[in-house]
Nucleic acid binder design. Sequence first.
DNA 1: TATTGTTATACTCTATAACTATA
DNA 2: TATAGTTATAGAGTATAACAATA
Lengths: 140, 140
Amino acid sequence: MTTTIGFTEALVRLAHVVDQVFGEVSRERGLTSQQAQLLCLLIEEPVGMTRLSRLLHLEKSSLTGLVDRVERRGLVARVRDDTDRRACRIALTDEGVRQGNETHNEVTSRLEQLAEGLSTADRKLMIGVVTEMSARHQAP
Amino acid sequence: MTTTIGFTEALVRLAHVVDQVFGEVSRERGLTSQQAQLLCLLIEEPVGMTRLSRLLHLEKSSLTGLVDRVERRGLVARVRDDTDRRACRIALTDEGVRQGNETHNEVTSRLEQLAEGLSTADRKLMIGVVTEMSARHQAP
DNA sequence: TATTGTTATACTCTATAACTATA
DNA sequence: TATAGTTATAGAGTATAACAATA
């Protein structure tokens, strides 16, 4: 029973797998995908609401609630911006850093497991393809 | 400013792109991603709630509401199963077939556009990789 | 008893519109 | 006036638990 699929369908299927892995890992930590994604995004550095909303493709008002819920869990904090009293930056707490890193590592680990045995050349190819597609998608 | 990304990160990024394209196309038709996904899934044939819930990784109770909303929009109908009076199959209406096909085609078209210029060999490679990863993810 | 699907309930996610405070 | 962020509101998505009807 070997069903052949097309290229586009492969992309969609891959997206489902990634989404599900991310969802599973998040869920195991008592987080939603969105909450976990927020934590992962903040690992690098604190980010303000307006920029976060662009990065996550969310309206600012939607973000307010998401941040509220993660803040209530003690994983992030609103830190005031000294240069602009209207603004704040969302920063991970110590526990948030832990959860964010663990989530990221676990997702990475599981995806690596699924891709086990894939040659370095093939990986590089996929990275190249994705980088190109991603750039095209953001360009317009 | 050329930032190099890892293989796993590429997978995650690709998933985001696909999700977003799917979301954009759905939205343009006044549908949510989940509703559009349901329509696309039903293009092949009508499916019962239990099987749908496995295919979409959703609890049956969550599915009831989703089907309700899509049915309210006149895109699907609950058809009774003659061999089992407990069961029903969710079938696309004529309008549902149209929307499902158009959504599928538009998503395909936009993803193809993003992957324009990619060689046949590279496409085949990606299909192979995804098929393998997808199979591993479902296996356990 | 097991299975199919629904209902009740409680959160979460999301957008739109209107708002406050600061720039 | 424009920008940063919040509030109010409404609808959609989701899970858990309890349920009805049928197998």
